Simulated scan of single mutants.
Amino acid sequence: MSDRLASSAARRPPFLILVTVSAIGPLALNIFMPSMPGLQATFGVPYGTVQLTLTLYLIGLAVCQLFYGPLSDRYGRRPLLLAGLALFVIASIASALATTIETLIAARLVQALGGASGIVLSRAIVRDLYQGEKAASVLGYITMAWVLAPMIAPAIGGYLDQLWGFRSSFVLLALIGALTLAVAWFTLHETNINRRTDGRLWQSAHYGRIFASGQFRGYATSLAFASAVFFTFLAFAPFLTVNIMGRSAMEYALWFIPVSVGYMIGNYCSGRYSERIGNDQMVLIGNSLTFAGATLCLVLALMGFLTPAAIFLPMLLCALGNGLTIPNGTVRAISIDPRLFGTAAGLLGFLQMGVSAVISQGVGSAQDHHFMIGYWVLAICAGLSALAHLAMLAKARR
């Protein structure tokens, strides 16, 4: 089906609502990061326990994407997205009211279950409407736009934390989620015109068919470790900046802005040049930049440069690389079966978030005693991402 036929077969949702629903999950993740070091004193727990507010959030994002995809292939994107947004609002309110770390961790998990709907279903919606490099281009523009929210989220979160404490961030998230739900109800139309009609709701055979593809496994492995680079950074950067370097949560938030700018530039380049250069070449360039940034970060740390600039400026390169790698790799990974775009997007998201959750929790738990571990894991994940993509391309040529 051509781009024209695909786009005319369904009413295109407004670009802004696609941006907003896909930003809900990353916004909730990043606005909370400056508050994490302070939770050690607030609840009197080790940093490894505080890290669970991030890890279980990622696990929630990972697991429920396995279900959002198939459900949306069967019942459509719209009802699943609206239900996810409603769950997100409820969980944000519960997080704001939490009085123990256990309650907060549980509420964050439920918040992730709702926020994941926008992440996986926005990908599927784009793939419903566009094909090939054009889909990567559109996805790149969407990602470039919604990355503005995570870019300013740590600064907002740090400011709110200093004024009213960590609960104020969740109040803001509840308000944003409620407004997004209201707008989506009236403007987001169904785009899945090739819904599955087979008898079973959730079939492991569909995941098996997708995972059996060497193309999917290669891209998924590369994307999983590329995502792990970013989430490893989220696991150790607040701890290093606040606990080791003695800087404020607000200073961490301000240093985070260049990293987000790098990611936004990468996604802009994906939107601008993917059709011209091609998906695989963009992934190669992105992997090279990510590995260069992670290696530079490690080398500077080994030389004794333990400053915010020595962490965040090399991470700008990593973020730029991820902005090239993730949109292009995503489109290639989920283009296995036109009837299973949602299922493939869900499985890909599960692998990305699952790997990131395991690695980031390991870093968060170990850095109390070995604060350099994050640097090493950063470089290793960047190298594995590049190697996975190169191996997949070499196998395809043979």
Rank of each mutant, 00 (worst) to 15 (best):
T232K: 07
E251H: 01
R247I: 10
F350K: 12
G218E: 02
L316H: 01
I380S: 13
G323N: 04
L82Q: 10
I125C: 10
P258A: 06
G304R: 06
F225W: 02
A301G: 07
L129H: 11
L129I: 15
R247V: 07
L201V: 15
Y57E: 01
L223S: 13
G25C: 05
L160R: 02
L351D: 02
V138F: 12
V259G: 00
S222A: 15
I210G: 07
S169Q: 14
P258L: 04
C381M: 11
F233T: 03
G38D: 02
G25R: 01
G349E: 01
S95N: 08
D161L: 15
M303K: 15
R108I: 06
R4Q: 13
V363P: 00
P79K: 13
D368Y: 07
G321E: 04
S385C: 07
L139Y: 13
P154T: 08
P14Y: 05
L80W: 02
Q367I: 09
A391T: 06
H206Y: 06
G349W: 02
G114D: 06
G218C: 09
A91H: 11
I277Y: 11
L129A: 11
M36T: 02
L104Y: 08
I210E: 03
L223P: 14
A135H: 11
I285D: 02
S274F: 01
I31E: 00
V89N: 03
R339K: 14
G69T: 11
A149Q: 08
V63D: 06
A155Y: 09
Y207N: 10
T103N: 07
P46G: 03
G118Y: 02
L289N: 05
G118C: 10
L81N: 03
R108F: 03
